[in-house]
Amino acid sequence: MKVLSAEDVRRTVPMPAAISAVRDAFLELAAGHFVLPARQIFGDGAVLVMSAYHTPSRTAVVKKIGIALDQVPAIRATVIWTGAGEQLVADGTSITTLRTGAVVGVATDLLAAPDATRLALLGTGGQAADQVRAVLAVRPITEVAVTGRDATRAAALAKTLAAEFPAVHFIPGTSIDDAIITADVICCATSSSTPLFSVDALPDRVHVNAIGAFRPTMRELPRDLLAAASVVMVDQREAALEESGEIIDALTSGTLAESDLLELGTALTTKPDPTGRTVFKSVGVGPQDWAIAAALAASVRSS
Rank of each mutant, 00 (worst) to 15 (best):
L4Q: 14
V9Y: 07
R10H: 12
R11G: 14
P14N: 07
M15C: 03
M15L: 02
A18S: 01
D24S: 13
A25I: 04
E28R: 11
E28Y: 06
H33S: 08
F34W: 15
L36E: 02
P37M: 02
P37K: 03
R39N: 03
F42M: 11
F42A: 11
G43F: 14
D44F: 10
A46Y: 10
S51I: 07
A52G: 15
A52M: 06
H54W: 03
P56M: 06
S57T: 15
R58N: 10
T59H: 07
I65R: 08
I67C: 09
L69A: 09
D70W: 00
Q71R: 12
I75K: 03
V79Q: 12
W81D: 13
Q87R: 15
Q87I: 13
L88F: 07
A90D: 10
G92H: 08
T93D: 11
T97V: 12
R99A: 05
G105H: 04
V106Y: 15
T108C: 15
D109T: 12
D109A: 15
P114S: 10
P114N: 08
A116K: 05
T117Q: 11
T117M: 07
L119Y: 01
A120W: 08
G123N: 01
G125Q: 04
Q127L: 14
D130K: 03
D130E: 14
Q131W: 11
L136C: 14
A137G: 01
A137F: 01
V138C: 08
V138S: 07
R139A: 04
R139I: 03
P140E: 04
P140C: 08
P140V: 09
T142H: 02
E143A: 10
D150T: 13
A151V: 08
A154M: 03
A156K: 05
L157E: 04
L157P: 03
A158K: 00
K159G: 07
T160D: 15
A162C: 08
F165M: 11
P166H: 06
P166E: 11
H169E: 09
H169C: 10
H169P: 02
F170L: 04
S175W: 00
D177E: 15
D178M: 03
A183N: 00
A183Q: 00
D184K: 03
V185D: 09
I186W: 01
C188N: 05
T190L: 06
T190P: 00
S191G: 08
S191H: 04
S192D: 10
F197D: 11
D204K: 14
D204C: 10
V206C: 15
V206T: 13
H207K: 05
N209Q: 03
I211G: 04
G212Y: 00
A213C: 00
T217F: 06
M218G: 00
M218I: 04
L221C: 09
R223V: 11
L225D: 06
L226C: 12
V232A: 02
V234C: 10
A240F: 05
L241N: 10
E243P: 02
E246I: 04
A250H: 01
L251I: 13
G254A: 09
E258T: 11
S259G: 10
D260I: 06
E263Q: 14
A267S: 05
L268Y: 08
L268M: 04
K271M: 14
T275Q: 14
G276C: 07
V283T: 11
V285H: 09
P287M: 01
W290H: 14
A291F: 01
A294T: 12
A294H: 15
L296M: 09
A297G: 10
S299N: 14
R301M: 02
